[in-house]
Structure formats: structure tokens, C-alpha cells
Amino acid sequence: MSKRIDVNDLNVYYGDFLAVEGIDMVIEARSVTALIGPSGCGKSTFLRTLNRMHEVIPKAYVTGKAVMDGQDLYGPGVDPVEVRRQVGMVFQRPNPFPTMSIADNVLAGVRLNNRRISKSDAADLVERSLTGANLWNEVKDRLNLPGSSLSGGQQQRLCIARAIAVEPQVLLMDEPCSALDPISTLAIEELISELKNDYTIVIVTHNMQQAARVSDRTGFFNIAGTGKPGHLIEMDDTTTMFSTPSEKSTEDYISGRFG
């Protein structure tokens, strides 16, 4: 249950403002793709176009193609709601629903669209998803407590459990560890390398060691200056990107000379 995405000449606009320009990218199935680059270079914006979450912002729109499994995500008649069912997302700050218990948080996506689920199926799914997110052992005795009672790292893993409970094809992660301490970060990174056996993962990160540790391929985004659109400068296998990148600016960024 994982698919590749082919992005073709994708531009993102906020109203008249061109935020990201001309992205061509292949995101391989069952692999981790990391997107790195300085702040404001459009990597998060681009990530959000992969499940059409940018449409939450008024006047944001996209031109170009993002084809998953032969289906253009921006084709006519494609419902963003359906896209998001297939392409899950984990956010920068953990955002479990505070009004729901831990178990209900996991089931939140499954209960949408009036899908009925029997009690035993629900319990199975909760256990499977939480186990998949390496959280089951920590919360199995308090599934009825509010999601907000967990620590930050646990909340983020709860959000991952919630995202994988609906069995998406692709999992997008927008700086999933930037609000977490190093130990929680390690837990999430281990989880990511397990999850890639089943899912296509795209992760935006500011932490270059993290990109080097978890990803198979890395894309470097950059921006020529404020008010200019972000571009994908270079994309390659992570080992190549971090040893012998072909672009000078990539090397400068990775070695910490700017950004």
C-alpha cells in the first residue's frame, strides 16, 4: 500500500505571488524522501501541495501535475478530500484532538464519512496503529485518557498512529521533530525507518543530520531572495547529496556555509 508520485512542472501561487516554481520530482514508493533547505524556501509549501492541504489557505492554487498511480492529484473532478485520504500528513507541532481520548484520536480518520466500525475491529485497529507508531506499550493502559495528557513526543507518535490508521499510500511529515527533545526525536526517526517498509514517506526537515540518517533520497530547495519563488536546486540519493553534490549551493548549505 504505497505508491510513487511523479511531480511535473509544479508551480504554487498565493494569489498573484509565485511561491514555488517549476518543481520536477520523482518520489519513490517505499522510501523516505527528505526535503531540506533554508527557511522560507517553499519546501513546506511544496509538501502541502502533495495532499492539497495548501488549499486551506485562501487564494492558494497550483499549476502543473502531481501524478500518483496514474492519477493526477490536480486532475478535473478530483476531490481534495479523497486525495487526503490517500496522502496522510503529520504536522510540525503535535496536534491530537484534545477533546478526544487516545483511542478516539487513532480512530478519528476512520470514523469520517460515517464509516461504521465494530467495537472489536476498532480495538484491533487502535492496537495495530499504536503498535505501528511504537506507542502501544506506553499507552495501552490509558487509552481512555485525553490525547493531550501525553508528552510531546508521545503526542507526535499518536498523530502518526492516527495518520496510518486510515492506511494511506503516502505519509507527509512537515518537520515532525522540530518541537521534540532528542530522545523523542530518536524514537520518531526509528519509527520512520520502520514505516518506510509499508509507506512512501516525504519528510521536510531543518535538521540535516536527520535527513542524512533517515532518508534514501534528498531534495534541496533554495530561494534566490525574498519575494522570489523557491526552486528545487538538486535531488539525488542521500549519500550522494551529502558527499558529492553536483551544485555548489547544495554543498554550501550542507556544510553550513549559509542558511
Binding site: 492541504m53 504536522f91 484532538f97 478519528a108 469520517l112 492516527r162 495518520a163
Partner: peptide, 11 residues
């Protein structure tokens, strides 16, 4: 954040 969490699940 909560609204986006819900939308991202396909709500």
C-alpha cells in the same frame, strides 16, 4: 492546528 489535523485525515 486541530482544523488542519482533521482536514488532513480527509474530513
Amino acid at each position: 492546528l486541530h482544523e488542519e489535523a482533521s482536514l488532513a485525515l480527509g474530513a
